[in-house]
């Protein structure tokens, strides 16, 4: 019994650390969005808070959100309305748990790691639908509907893109996939050269994965469910104060989580040529993930938004067939090579 208790204690500790780290990085990403967008638009961005570069801006905003009134509209379905942000945040954290930071630093290493991540991530759809419906506002409802349609459409390409990687690596474990990418692919003289999957056959999968991730995260150019100019923030319209903050945090934590997963699946995870994964692993992985996050921010501030039907046709006409073709090619190559 005491051992079991210990396991739970350890797990709780790990989870606590994970939550703190994720919050910290999410705040960094928020700040990066403020600054990056500002520089892309010839602005300075946050400047005063904290004295230098406005580094305290995100904390100031977090405080502002926390002290705002937590409103629940009269027509809202109270329990569902209040539960939705928590479900959203929970789903995101459930994904983050399985990301391996180094060969030894893994909160949970599941056999089915990536499969679990996809399953946990799909729960966030429910949270969005809950938020959209329970707000009692037509704009929220339309936003929720759009989100539902969009997330269903992009779940499939996401899974298909992952399947290619799984076939090539021969495992679903996140650690296993990372290690598979560290295996020497070919030899130059006596030196074995390893390549991350994005360079070793899964470039199509990577592109599909990233597009689907953008859609899953409801980021521009796929942010129709919140579409401020059309739906006045869609399913977020009625949220305020701490619950809005939870959605916001969920978005940035989700960006981090999905980028980290993409880094594990396609960019070699914690491995980087010549760096000791045990020591530098966490930084390498974080660096790769933040690079992808930067790309997401970059897209956000340069592109307009697609229309819902255009997004659907992109998913079904291009991404799904491409994903299937990718799987077929990968499977054939796996057998042949």
């Amino acid at each position: 019994m005491s051992l079991l208790d210990n396991v739970w204690v350890v797990l709780a500790l790990k989870l606590g650390i994970a939550v703190v780290v994720v919050f910290a990085v999410a705040l960094v990403i928020m700040f990066a969005e403020l600054k990056v967008s500002a520089h892309m638009q010839h602005r300075v961005g946050p400047y005063f808070a904290g004295g230098r570069w406005g580094w305290a801006q995100v904390f100031a905003e977090a405080l502002k959100f926390l002290q705002k009134e937590d409103l629940t509209p009269r027509d809202a379905d109270r329990p569902v309305f209040r539960l939705a942000p928590m479900v959203s945040l929970l789903a995101t954290f459930a994904v983050i748990v399985i990301i391996p930071l180094s060969p030894k630093l893994v909160a949970v290493d599941l056999d089915l790691g990536i499969f679990y991540a996809l399953a946990a991530g799909s729960v966030s759809t429910i949270a969005i639908l809950m938020a959209g419906w329970s707000s009692g506002s037509k704009y929220s409802l339309i936003g929720g509907l759009r989100a539902g349609a969009q997330l269903i459409a992009y779940e499939l390409p996401l899974v298909l893109a992952v399947v290619g990687v799984v076939i090539q690596a021969g495992t679903m474990s996140m650690v296993g996939i990372t290690e598979a990418q560290a295996q020497p692919l070919f030899h130059l003289g006596s030196v074995g050269i390893s390549l991350p999957y994005v360079l070793a056959g899964q470039i199509v999968g990577f592109v599909i994965f990233m597009i689907a991730v953008l859609a899953e995260l409801v980021r521009i150019p796929f942010d129709m469910p919140i579409a401020e100019q059309e739906l006045v923030m869609g399913y977020l319209t009625e949220y305020s104060g701490i619950r809005f903050t939870m959605f916001l945090l969920g978005e940035y934590a989700g960006m981090l989580a999905m980028s980290a997963i993409a880094a594990v699946l396609f960019l070699g995870g914690y491995h980087f040529w010549g760096l000791n994964a045990d020591w530098f692993g966490p930084f390498v992985l974080l660096g790769k993930a933040l690079l992808l996050v930067f790309v997401m921010i970059w897209f956000r501030w340069t592109w307009p938004r697609l229309r819902e039907d255009q997004l659907q046709s992109l998913a079904w006409r291009w991404l799904v067939p491409l994903g299937l073709a990718n799987i077929a090619v990968t499977a054939v190559l796996k057998v042949v090579l």
Binding site: F115, L118, A119, A120, S122, V123, T125, I126, L129, G148, L151, I152, E155, V159
Partner: peptide, 11 residues
């Protein structure tokens, strides 16, 4: 989770 909660219930 993936099929029933993530897809069927969402539908």
């Amino acid at each position: 989770v993936l099929v029933y909660i993530g897809a069927v219930v969402v539908l």
